[in-house]
Design a protein around this nucleic acid. Structure first.
Lengths: 213, 213, 213, 213
DNA sequence: ATTTAACCGAGACGGTACGTCTAGTCTTGAT
DNA sequence: ATCAAGACTAGACGTACCGTCTCGGTTAAAT
C-alpha cells in the first residue's frame, strides 16, 4: 500500500481554502449535500480539483470541516444548578440547530455518509459527538454530586436516555422534534415511567438492585 | 410533471423478480450495499436493466423489498405478562438482528439513504418502523392496564425512551450494542434515573411486582 | 439457422396494415426517417410491435412499401419522338421528386440504409431502380433505332451518364440540383465534351472504334 | 443553443488519440462500421468514452479522421498530357480504392451517415470531395487550354459526367465497377453518345489527337 | 539572488455507473 | 391464428463524477 505524501500545511493557500469552504457552504445551501460534487465545488471556488483532494479525503470531510466552528461554539453546557433545566436547555438548542435548514439536512447527510465511511464515522465521534458527550457527562457528574442524578448510574447509559429520543426522531423521522418533546423526555427519564401512580402526588422511591458487577 | 406510465403487475415475470431479489441478496453480502450497482444486479440476475427500473424506483427500494419478509416476521411482540422482560426480549432481538452481518450493515445503509430520499424515508416509516412501533405501543398499552407502565405516559415518548438508546448507538456508533445495555435501558427508563432530592420535590416509591419468570 | 414461420397473408388485418402505413407516412414527415422508430410507429398506429415485425423485416422495408405507389406511377417514360427532350423531361421530374420535402429526404435515408442492408439494397434495385432503368433503356433503344443515340452504345453505360450526374449531386451534395443542370447534362452527354469547337456551329463526327468484343 | 466548452488541443494525449484511431481501424475491419460502437472503440483502445466524445462529435467523424491520410495521398491528379488517359488512371484508382475491402464498405457507410448528418455531410464535402474535385478541375482546366476538353464546358458539369457514373454504381449498386467501365465512361463523355441525326442538326467531327502514350 | 520544491488553476485522462432508448422476442388475453 | 399490448433480454447511448495525472505559472523557503 502506497501512502500519499503529505502536503506541507505551511505552504497552504489561505485564499484557496477560504474559497473552497465558502463555495461548499453556498452550494450545499443551493443544491444540497447529495447533488453537490467535488467537481462542482472546485469550479465554484475557482480552484483545481487537486487542491481539494490534497487537503480533504472526501466531500464529507470537507463538509465536516466547514461546520466545525458552528458545532464547536455550541459545546458549552449550561450549569444553573438545576440539572433538569440545564438538560432541557441544551437539548432544545440541539433541536433548534437540527431544525435550522442550513444545518439540519446537511448534518443528517453527514451522519448518513458515516454509515459506510469508517473514517468519517470516527471523525464524527472524535470531533462532534465525543466532545459533546464529554461535556454532557461532566454536567451529569456534577448533577450526581448534587444528588439530582442517581449516583450509581452509568453516564453513557444516561446519555443514551437523554439524547436517544432526539436521534430517534431526527434520523428515523418517526415523529416531529419539538421543545415540548425535549422537556418531556428529560422529565420522564429522571422520574421513570414504570408503575401506576394511582394517587398522583405519591411517588415511588428508587430502589436500584444491581450492585457493581 | 410527466408521470411514467405504470407497468401492469399482472404481466410481471415471476422469474425475473425472483432472480433480481436473489442477485441483490447475494451481491449485498459479497460487496456491500454501496458498491452494489443496479447495473451489477441486472448482470448478476441475467436481466435487463430496464426490468429493474420498471418495478423499483431506486436501489434502496429494491433492498427494502428484499428485506420485507425478514422484518415482517420479527414483528410479533412477546407478551408474557412481564412488561420489562418482554421489552428486553424484544430489544435484544433487534440488537441481534442489527448485529447480523447480513442485515445490520445494509439496513444501516438504507437508513442512510433515507436521509436524502424522501420517498424511501416514508416507505421505511410506513413499512418498517410504523408497524413495529404500532406493535410496541400495543404491548405498552397492555402494560399500562396492568399497572406496569405509568398510565398517563405518552406512548410515542415511551417508544423514544426504550428504543432511542438503541438507535443512538446503532447509527452514531458512540458505544457498542449489547444485551446488557438493552436490559439496563429498560430498567432505567422504568425506574427513572433521577437522584434522591435533598430538598422537598417528593419522589415516588418504586412499586414494581416482578412476576415469576 | 431457424427460419421464422411465415404468416398467412390471407388472415392479415387490412386495418392494421393501413394504420401502420399511415402512421409511418405521418411520422416520417414530422420527425424524419432516422428519429422514427418501429416502437414509435406501433404506438402511433395503435398496433402491436409484433404486427409490424410480422410483415416487414425492417423499418426500411416498411418505408419502401409505403412509397411503392408514388414511385410506380412515376415509371412511364415519355416518348415524343425527341430523345433529348424526353430525357430532360424525365430527369427533371426525378429532380422535382427528389426536391419534394416529403419524398427527397426519406428516400435519401433509404439509399443510405441500403449501404449496409444487403436485403434492402436488392429490394431497391429490384423494385425501384431496376424497373426505372428498364423503362429508360426501352426509350433509349427506341432512340437508337431512330438514330438519335449511337447505335452501338452500351445502354447501361448510357444510363450511368444520363443519371450519374443526378445521383452525384443528390447523394454527395456537392452541387445543387436544378432543371438547367438536367438539360446541360443531356446535351453534353449526347454531344460529348471533348475537343475545342473553335468555330461553334461546326461539330465533329462520331468515330467509335470499339467493335463488339 | 448551448455550446460545449472546447477542450484544449495542446493538452491532447497523443497516446490516447493513436490508440483510438488504431482501435477504430481494427474494429471496422473486424465487425464493420455499423456494428462498431463508440463504447466498443473505447474498450478496445483502453480509453474512457469521454475521451472520444471530447474530440469527436460522432462515430462518423472519427472514421472520417481515420481515413484522412489515405484519402489525402490519393489527391494528386496525374498530368501526362493526355487528358483522357489521366482521367481513366484517376477514376480507376478511385474504383480500386472503393473495391478495397478495408476502405470501400466503410466509406460507403460514411456517405450513408452523411445523408442524415448535416455536419458530417459538409465535412465530407470540405475534406474529401471538395479537394478532389478541385484537383480534378485543375486538370480539366489544363485540358481545356490544350484543346482536349471543350473550352466552354462548365467544369462542375464535367465532373458530374466523369464521376457520376462511378457514384451511380458505387452507391446504388445497379452494376459492377470495373476498369473497363471507367474507360468507357471517359471515352463516351468526351466523344458524346448522340446518334447521327437523320435530319439537319449538323454534328461535329471528332478531332482528337492522341499523343503517344 | 538564484535555485528549487511545493502549491496552485486548469483540465485531460481511464474508469464506473447512471438512467434512457430502441431492437427484436416472448407472453397474455381478446376477437 | 391474428391482433393490441407490453414485459422481457440485451446492449449502446451520451452524461456526470470519480480520483489521478500532467501542464505551466506562481510563491516561498533554501541555498
Amino acid at each position: 500500500m502506497i501512502h500519499r505524501r503529505r502536503p506541507d500545511p505551511n505552504r497552504r493557500s489561505a485564499r484557496a481554502q477560504t474559497a473552497i469552504l465558502k463555495a461548499t457552504r453556498e452550494l450545499i445551501g443551493e443544491i444540497g449535500y447529495d447533488k453537490m460534487s467535488i467537481e462542482g465545488i472546485a469550479a465554484a471556488a475557482g480552484v483545481g480539483k487537486q487542491t481539494i483532494y490534497r487537503w480533504w479525503p472526501s466531500k464529507a470531510a470537507l463538509v465536516l470541516d466547514m461546520w466545525s466552528p458552528e458545532v464547536q461554539q455550541q459545546l458549552t453546557f449550561p450549569n444553573t444548578g438545576d440539572l433538569a433545566a440545564d438538560l432541557k436547555t441544551q437539548i432544545i438548542s440541539v433541536i433548534d440547530l437540527s431544525n435550522d435548514p442550513a444545518f439540519g439536512p446537511s448534518f443528517r447527510a453527514l451522519v448518513a455518509e458515516a454509515q459506510h465511511d469508517e473514517a468519517l464515522a470516527s471523525q464524527l465521534v472524535e470531533r462532534i459527538f465525543g466532545p459533546r458527550i464529554a461535556a454532557a457527562k461532566e454536567r451529569l457528574r456534577a448533577g450526581q454530586t448534587e444528588g439530582q442524578l442517581a449516583a450509581d448510574i452509568d453516564l453513557d447509559l444516561a446519555i443514551d436516555l437523554f439524547y436517544g429520543g432526539f436521534y430517534h426522531r431526527y434520523l428515523l423521522r418517526v415523529a416531529p422534534l419539538t421543545h415540548e418533546h425535549a422537556e418531556a423526555v428529560v422529565d420522564a427519564v429522571l422520574a421513570g415511567i414504570g408503575g401506576v401512580p394511582l394517587t398522583p402526588p405519591k411517588r415511588r422511591r428508587l430502589v436500584r438492585a444491581r450492585p457493581a458487577t
